[in-house]
């Protein structure tokens, strides 16, 4: 079959299978066929383990939330197990990047609210006492009381 015949056959098939007009993404392409209805897109978030947050990994097309979960598992968890998987219709997600007013950006000096913005250690040293860090407190919590 030549490429030209192939195209012709494609159009014929397109009509036969009843491509529908006026659906969501329905639009004239190259003046030939009407695009058929698209399967919805779900964004996929995988939570690797109990202490991780769900992270966006990609998206799948699926006709229902049930299928979206099944397909998310296939598309993104073929090798490793997951603690949980979330799917959400892509059109239900609003992103900040397209609205610069709400996009978090580094503006004025925010060091006053960061641990690194403080320098207490030399002062503690003057009082002959040890400075504390959150890591050291957390490590202490893992040892038995009274040690």
């Amino acid at each position: 079959m030549t490429a030209k015949e192939g195209r012709k056959e494609g159009r014929k098939e397109g009509r036969k299978e009843g491509r529908k007009e006026g659906r969501k993404e329905g639009r004239k392409e190259g003046g030939s066929v009407m695009a058929i209805e698209e399967t919805p897109v779900y964004e996929v978030f995988v939570q690797a383990d109990a202490l991780s947050f769900p992270t966006h990994v990609g998206s799948v097309r699926a006709s229902s939330p049930e299928f979206a979960l099944q397909m998310a598992r296939e598309a993104f968890c073929r090798r490793e197990a997951a603690h949980d998987v979330w799917v959400a219709r892509a059109d239900a997600i609003t992103k900040a990047r397209s609205d610069s007013a709400t996009l978090p950006r580094q503006g004025t000096d925010k060091r006053y609210r960061l641990p690194g913005g403080y320098d207490n250690a030399p002062h503690w040293k003057r009082f002959k006492a040890m400075a504390m860090t959150i890591e050291e407190v957390a490590a202490d919590m893992r040892t038995k009381p009274g040690r």
Binding site: E25, R27, E29, A35, I36, E37, E38, T39, R61
Partner: peptide, 8 residues
């Protein structure tokens, strides 16, 4: 923006 998805 071109109105084209998986099918197209």
């Amino acid at each position: 923006p071109y109105g084209r998805g998986r099918e197209a």
